[in-house]
Simulated assay, not measured.
Amino acid sequence: MILQHEDHFEPCRELADWARETFIEPGGTLENEDHEHLQHASIGFLWTNVANAKKGRRIVGQAEPGKPMGMGGKWGKARQEYQVTQWFGEVPDFIITLDANYASQCSDAEFCALVEHELYHCAQEKDEFGAPRFNQQTGLPVFGMRGHDIEEFIGVVRRYGAEATHIQELIQAAKEGPTIAPANIAQSCGTCLARAA
């Protein structure tokens, strides 16, 4: 794990192997059937010490497609593919980048929840009928990215709890119930008032 002062990214084959053996492979110590589709996926892991934030919130993990997204024309794409191949020996289906500073301080449950959260973003594409897509030539799954959805949150919270996933405030708000009565909503909603008229 890296904790240097200058900005740094470092591939970690051991972390990739651990994540696969722990969460993806059948019989893993923390096997999650939700990740079964990733058995044929190539996943590269990177440690970084680069601080990242979005809208004032710290980003401690990120999953993305391994294939570069065409930045900078042909040279930019070729340069990115070259860098990724130098790191992993191939262009993987997915790259997961983790904040090494966060990982050095978080609990085991928080770390497992982080890795699984990122794995939930790594998905198998669906066809127009909602069935998993497969490459017609190879028969292998066609992979893509999945956004945040309720299934991901339920899966991670079910496995690691509210504390490790940092959603205690959300659970407390749900337990306390709504602070606004339905009658008050109806009184201030143009659609509701139109229906009542």
Score class of each variant (00 low, 15 high):
31 E>L: 12
31 E>I: 10
36 E>M: 05
37 H>E: 13
39 Q>F: 01
42 S>F: 06
44 G>T: 14
47 W>C: 12
51 A>H: 12
55 K>S: 14
56 G>V: 02
57 R>I: 10
58 R>K: 13
66 G>F: 03
68 P>C: 05
68 P>A: 06
69 M>D: 14
70 G>Y: 11
70 G>E: 13
70 G>A: 13
71 M>Q: 14
75 W>Q: 06
76 G>L: 08
78 A>Y: 02
78 A>L: 02
79 R>M: 01
82 Y>I: 00
83 Q>H: 08
84 V>Y: 11
84 V>K: 03
90 E>I: 08
92 P>Y: 00
93 D>G: 06
94 F>Q: 15
94 F>K: 03
95 I>T: 13
95 I>V: 15
95 I>F: 12
98 L>A: 02
99 D>K: 01
99 D>M: 14
103 A>N: 00
105 Q>F: 06
108 D>S: 03
108 D>H: 09
108 D>L: 07
110 E>F: 09
110 E>C: 10
112 C>K: 15
112 C>M: 14
114 L>G: 11
114 L>Y: 08
115 V>I: 12
115 V>K: 00
119 L>C: 06
121 H>K: 05
121 H>S: 01
128 E>L: 14
128 E>F: 08
131 A>R: 12
135 N>T: 04
138 T>C: 08
140 L>Y: 04
142 V>G: 07
142 V>Y: 01
147 G>I: 11
150 I>H: 14
151 E>W: 09
151 E>M: 10
152 E>P: 03
154 I>W: 00
155 G>K: 02
155 G>D: 09
156 V>E: 03
156 V>H: 02
158 R>G: 00
158 R>W: 04
159 R>G: 11
161 G>F: 00
163 E>T: 08
165 T>L: 02
167 I>K: 01
169 E>D: 14
171 I>F: 09
172 Q>F: 04
172 Q>K: 13
174 A>G: 06
176 E>Y: 07
178 P>E: 05
